[in-house]
Amino acid sequence: MQLYLAVPVVLVALLIAASGVAALTRGWVLASNRSPVRRPRLYGWGQLTVAFALCRQMLFLLALDGTGPRQWGP
């Protein structure tokens, strides 16, 4: 397992997920994204989807070593 790749990606996914939860529960969006975001709840669901997809991608990249099963994941 390549931890030098997994640890930063999981940390980024957690930050994205935390921002998505904040957008869903409080309607809070980062200052740099406040003007283009019209619907914070939809934005929050999108961020949670991106965080889930990033973790899923890391799971199939790192957990399935070998050339055969890895191709089925994505």
Rank of each mutant, 00 (worst) to 15 (best):
V37N: 03
G20K: 09
A18Y: 08
S32A: 14
A18S: 15
V10T: 15
S35A: 11
V12W: 07
S19K: 10
L11C: 11
A18W: 10
V10W: 14
A17D: 14
A31T: 13
V10G: 08
V29S: 03
R39W: 04
N33M: 13
P36A: 02
L14T: 14
R39G: 06
S35M: 06
V12S: 09
R39N: 10
R34W: 01
G27M: 04
R34D: 13
L11M: 13
A18I: 02
A23P: 12
G20Q: 11
A17M: 11
L15G: 15
S32K: 07
S35W: 07
R38V: 13
A23K: 06
W28A: 15
S19R: 12
S32H: 12
R38W: 03
A31K: 01
P36L: 03
R34I: 04
V29N: 04
P40G: 04
S19E: 15
A18N: 11
L14C: 14
L14N: 06
V12K: 02
N33T: 11
N33D: 15
P40W: 09
L15T: 06
P36V: 02
G27R: 00
L15W: 10
L24Q: 04
L24E: 11
L24S: 00
A22P: 13
S32G: 10
T25L: 11
R26A: 13
A18L: 12
W28M: 08
R38H: 08
A17P: 07
W28T: 15
I16F: 04
V29T: 07
V29M: 02
I16R: 02
A22D: 14
G20V: 14
A17V: 03
G20T: 09
L14Q: 13
T25R: 15
L11E: 10
P40V: 10
V37M: 10
V21Y: 09
V12M: 12
L15K: 00
A31R: 08
S19P: 04
V21N: 03
R34S: 10
L15E: 14
A17K: 02
A18T: 08
T25M: 06
P36Y: 09
V29R: 00
I16V: 15
V10Y: 07
A31N: 14
A22V: 09
R38I: 05
V12N: 03
R26I: 01
G27I: 05
A18V: 11
W28Y: 08
V12C: 07
S19D: 15
V21T: 10
A13D: 00
V10H: 12
A13P: 00
I16N: 04
V29H: 08
A23Y: 13
V37L: 06
I16G: 01
L15P: 01
V12T: 05
R34F: 00
A18D: 13
R39Q: 06
R26H: 09
A13C: 02
S32D: 14
I16Y: 02
R38S: 12
I16E: 01
V29G: 05
A17Q: 13
A13G: 01
S35I: 08
A13Q: 00
V21K: 00
A22L: 14
G20Y: 05
L14F: 14
A31C: 06
P40I: 08
G20C: 13
L24M: 12
T25G: 04
G20W: 02
L11R: 06
